[in-house]
Simulated assay, not measured.
Amino acid sequence: MSRYSIEDFVKQTQQQDKGEGLFELESPRILEINLTNQIWTKAGAMISYRGNIKFEREGILEHGLGKLFKKALTGEGTALMKATGNGKLYVADQGKKISILNLQGDSIFVNGNDLLAFEPSISWDIKLMRKVAGMLSGGLFNVRLEGSGMIAITSHYEPLTLLVTPDNPVFTDPNATVAWSGNLQPEFVTDISFKTFLGRGSGESVQMKFAGNGFVVVQPFEEVYYSEQS
């Protein structure tokens, strides 16, 4: 086989069955879902599938009026797609790196823009960050996921997890914050000197403070979100 031939390209890039179960990283940026029943994915994340799979956009009242009301305030950031059937489903989100987490009765907060897919066995709820909504482009919201099952989250480039302890809190840029443990409640602090030092817009002076016992996940990228209201 000659180097760089079409046959060589196909061999190097073709899909492989790894036998890892429901969620499989086909590449660091493509998630394969071995679907046998139902899964929730971020709307627009499907890039390919094979088999008998039906796609439905999240119903207006599917998750109750409370979540509908909160979703209306946050824009389309957490719009979900329900995939049902049997087959292989491939999802991705703008080339972002994918991390798979197997929740076992625990909980995690994920930035609404960084949630890629999760099993129906996982309970979830949208949490608005009202105090900071007016300070950042499009506001900021997150999803609390809890229970037992698989979830997939995304980050721009490689994520970094920082441990939080009572005597050593962690401060993060909200636009670079991907996820944090479900027992932590971030506090928003404004540092005027930090803003002056950077010489940037007002959003840069807002920081998230994590205190207690847990962890926070950040990415080496500042993601700016735009809601429908912006």
Rank of each mutant, 00 (worst) to 15 (best):
L115A: 09
G85T: 07
N102G: 00
G112P: 00
A92F: 01
N113T: 15
F118I: 05
I100S: 02
L115M: 12
S107R: 12
L101G: 00
Y90R: 13
E76P: 03
V91E: 02
G85A: 03
I108D: 07
G77M: 10
E76F: 09
G112W: 11
A72H: 08
E76M: 11
S121G: 03
L116D: 04
I108L: 13
Y90M: 12
A83N: 12
N102K: 11
L116N: 10
E76Q: 14
V91C: 04
D114T: 00
L115N: 09
G85C: 05
L80Y: 12
V110L: 10
N102P: 01
Q94W: 00
P120Y: 07
I108P: 06
K88F: 05
I108W: 12
G112K: 11
V110H: 02
G87A: 03
M81G: 04
N113A: 14
T74K: 12
L101H: 11
I108H: 08
G112Q: 14
V110G: 03
G85L: 02
D114K: 14
L103C: 01
P120V: 05
G87S: 04
T74Y: 10
E76G: 15
W124K: 10
D114L: 01
N86T: 15
L89V: 04
M81D: 13
I100N: 08
L115V: 14
G75L: 06
A117H: 07
G112M: 12
T84R: 12
K88G: 11
P120N: 05
D106W: 09
E119P: 02
L101A: 04
I108G: 09
I122M: 04
T78W: 11
I122H: 05
G75E: 10
E76A: 15
L73I: 15
N86Q: 14
N111F: 10
G85S: 08
T84F: 05
S121H: 00
A117R: 07
S107A: 14
T84P: 05
L103N: 03
A83S: 15
K71C: 03
S123R: 12
N111W: 06
P120W: 04
L101I: 14
L115E: 10
Q94H: 12
E119V: 01
V91S: 04
A92D: 07
I122E: 03
K82L: 15
Q104E: 13
M81F: 06
W124E: 10
K88S: 09
Y90A: 05
G95S: 02
N111L: 08
Q104A: 14
I108K: 08
D114H: 15
A83P: 11
S121F: 00
S121C: 00
S121V: 01
G87K: 03
D93T: 01
Q104G: 07
A83L: 05
N113E: 15
P120R: 02
A72T: 14
N102H: 10
K96I: 00
G87P: 11
G85I: 04
V91Y: 02
